[in-house]
Nucleic acid binder design. Sequence first.
DNA 1: GTCTATATAGCGATAGAC
DNA 2: GTCTATCGCTATATAGAC
Lengths: 218, 218
Amino acid sequence: MEQSDTRESLLDAAEELFSEHGIQASSVRAITQHATANLAAVNYHFGSKDGLVRAVFARRLKPMSEERLRELDGCDLSAPDAVEQVLVAFLKPVLRMAKETPEGARGFARLMGRAFSEPNEEVRQAILGELSESIHRFLVAFSQLLPHLPQDELIWRFHFVGGAMGHTVACGHLLERSLEGRCHIGDTGEVLQRMVPFLAAGMRAPAGTQEALIKETT
Amino acid sequence: MEQSDTRESLLDAAEELFSEHGIQASSVRAITQHATANLAAVNYHFGSKDGLVRAVFARRLKPMSEERLRELDGCDLSAPDAVEQVLVAFLKPVLRMAKETPEGARGFARLMGRAFSEPNEEVRQAILGELSESIHRFLVAFSQLLPHLPQDELIWRFHFVGGAMGHTVACGHLLERSLEGRCHIGDTGEVLQRMVPFLAAGMRAPAGTQEALIKETT
DNA sequence: GTCTATATAGCGATAGAC
DNA sequence: GTCTATCGCTATATAGAC
C-alpha cells in the first residue's frame, strides 16, 4: 500500500534542509542527495521544487490543526483557568511537533516560524489557508472567555500569542544561548510553563488607553 | 563630503529588495538595477554581496540601539507604570523605523523580524553583536522593576516580548488582513496602545507552576 | 519509477578599458 | 569610480534510455 519510499525520504530531507538553511538556499540537488535519491526524483514526484515545498507544509499542517481542535474541544471553557487551557490547546501541538520532527527542535516547527514571511506568496497562501479554520475557532473560544474585549483587541492579542510562539519555536537557539543551556526548547512542559502564565496574563489584561504614556509618537 | 551617491543608493535598494523578497532571493543584479548602478558597483563598494548585507544591517542597527538606550534613560523606574515605560522605550524605536524606512512598514523592520533565522550564521552574529548591549541594559532594568522574578524567567519573558514585536513588525500584513484594514502598522501610537498593556501584564504575571494543567506533555 | 545526460538560465565575482 | 565583457559555477527542469 505504500506509494513510494522515495517520496517520503524526499519530504524528510527537504524538511530538514529547509529548516536548517531556508527554502531558497536548499537546492534540489542537495535535497535529493540528502535523501539518497536521484536528482530527477523531485520533479517526478512533485512536479517542481515549489510542489515539493507545498507538500512539505501540507504533510504537517493538517494533522497539527486537527490536533489543536481536538485539544480545544477538550477544554472546559467554564473553568477559572479556561484561558490557560485554551492557550495550551493552541501551543501544545506546535511544541510537540518541534520535538518530534526528525531533527528535533530545529525541525519543521522552526521552519513554520519563518514561513509567514520567507517563502513566495503562493506558498504563504497555502499555509494560511491550511491554518485559517483553526485560528478562527480559537478566536471564537477566546471571545467567549473574554467577552469584555472588543473583537479587534482580541485579534491583536492572538497575534501577539502567535508571535511569541513562532519566535520561541523558530529562534529557540537565541533563548538557549541567553540561558546558557538552562532550558530545552524540546521540553514541551517547560516551555508551556514559561509561556502560558505570560500569555494568559496578557490576554486577560484590561484593554489599554494610556494616552499619557504614548502620546508622543514622532 | 559625501563619499558616494551610489553607495547609499545600493544600500537603499538592497534594503528594499531584501525586505520584500528575502536576502537570498535578491540578486546583486536586481539590486544594482534597482539602484540604477552598475553590476560591478556592489563588489567595488562592499567587496561582496555578504559585505553589502552586513552594511545594510549596520546602517540601521546602531542608531536604533542608541535611540532605545536614550529612551530607557528617560524612563522613571520608580513610577507605577515603569514597566510600561520601559516597554515603550524598547518598542518605539523599532516601530518608528518600521514607519520611516523607505517603503514604510514593509521595510527594514520587517527584514529585522526575520533576520534571526534567515540569513547565514555570519550575518546573524553581526546582528546579535550590534544588539546585545541594549538587550542587556533592558534586562537589567526589568530585573530592577520585577525583583521577585528569577533571572531565567525574566529572560524567557523578554524573549516573548521580542517575539511579539518581531512578528508584529515582520508579519503586519497578517494583522492588516485579519482586521480588514482596521489597523495601521505604521501608526506607532496605535501599535503601542495594543502591545504595551498585553506585554506589561505578561511581564508582571506571577511566575507559573500550573503543574495540573501542563502535566501531560506527551 | 529510476537513472544519465543535458538544455537553459541565472548567479557572484573579476579583469581590464575608460 | 564606473563601465563592459566574461569566467566559472550552480540552479531548475526535462528528454529519453532502462
